[in-house]
Design a protein around this nucleic acid. Sequence first.
DNA 1: GTCGAAACGGACCACCAGTCCGAATCATCG
DNA 2: CGATGATTCGGACTGGTGGTCCGTTTCGAC
Lengths: 194, 194
Amino acid sequence: MVRADKARNQEIVLAAAGRLFDAARDPDDVSMDAVAAEAGVGKGTIFRGFGDRAGLIRALYEQRAAAFVAQTHREAPAHQGSPADAVHFLLLRLWQFKRQNRMLALSLDRAGQGSPYRNDSYDDALGRLKDLLAHHGEQADFLAHALLAAVRSDLVEHLRDRPDEEIAAGLRTLVDRVAGRHPNLPCPAGNDPQ
Amino acid sequence: MVRADKARNQEIVLAAAGRLFDAARDPDDVSMDAVAAEAGVGKGTIFRGFGDRAGLIRALYEQRAAAFVAQTHREAPAHQGSPADAVHFLLLRLWQFKRQNRMLALSLDRAGQGSPYRNDSYDDALGRLKDLLAHHGEQADFLAHALLAAVRSDLVEHLRDRPDEEIAAGLRTLVDRVAGRHPNLPCPAGNDPQ
DNA sequence: GTCGAAACGGACCACCAGTCCGAATCATCG
DNA sequence: CGATGATTCGGACTGGTGGTCCGTTTCGAC
């Protein structure tokens, strides 16, 4: 059983951390001490509840990702269309999410020990992509990783000032190329005149 | 003029840092103190010579990248082929480089303040890719970033135990799709540069 | 109301990047 | 050469961090 105060404190801490990450200008000017202070809670409480810094970040990230997914479902319930459309939609949503949660997403990436790959959201997106890319056979896995890499949080950050349409168009092209159905081989010997 | 001891010490420090990064199991168990000790030099010397930790990492990274490029040129002097071939070759080399310099590359990525994008090697590769993708018009820039994201060091790390052929094949497909000519796809004015 | 288990708080620790300044070393010029 | 002024060196020192520890408080089952 979960003691009531523990559960309550976890929520308080997550909320406090969220506020601090939203206000931060750099991923690591959110210290654990600061979170504890903002939450009005002892530092031990945080570490007992989340293990370590990476754990806290992951928990907050997952919470927000879940909310984002829920919102997406609400707004665009049964998304229909070609696989390429679905891939494009997924990547675009990820891009937007990371734009809205810049410091949090950057922190997650930097939290060491392969953390960008060790969270449920990533696995989730990866799985979905692999399905949508199934026609690539064994390479679906690598291609899924590669597509997700195109929406890595620090690339989002790096291209922060590009207009949305430019990003959307770029992703569209990328996706059409990679996920689009091509009747024939992956680019027949793909050569061109020199 | 550059004082002789300074130049000499910079080399000593770079060599020491290189040794430590090669031996490390985690990007940040190479501390500045450790580098100073390994180099037999005071800590101040390092910071005077490289500014900060990120500066040291970048310097070492650039040094090794330059050596790698030189070696590449030696082994495969005048690389010919379609643009897609050139892109594939470039990405594959980057992948190999990051595999050979795992901890160093990871450290660079994690060195804060957009460091993965703030180094000459990246700009170099980006420029080359943009040229090779020029037929994509305005999207060449985004696509170049996206392709480079597919060889991000922590993806290399994450897929470390995949056989080389699998990676090469995946990259090949990705590149053929993105850089190759596809008659039936939205590839405006789709003809090659040069 | 009692009591054992679980969670709390915040002082405490080890460590790290980066600074600082007296001591040592360099290049220059007489 | 040997003297001199500018540079660089070394490593003790600082501020701040993630993470631990344990005496104290709170919870909830009975």
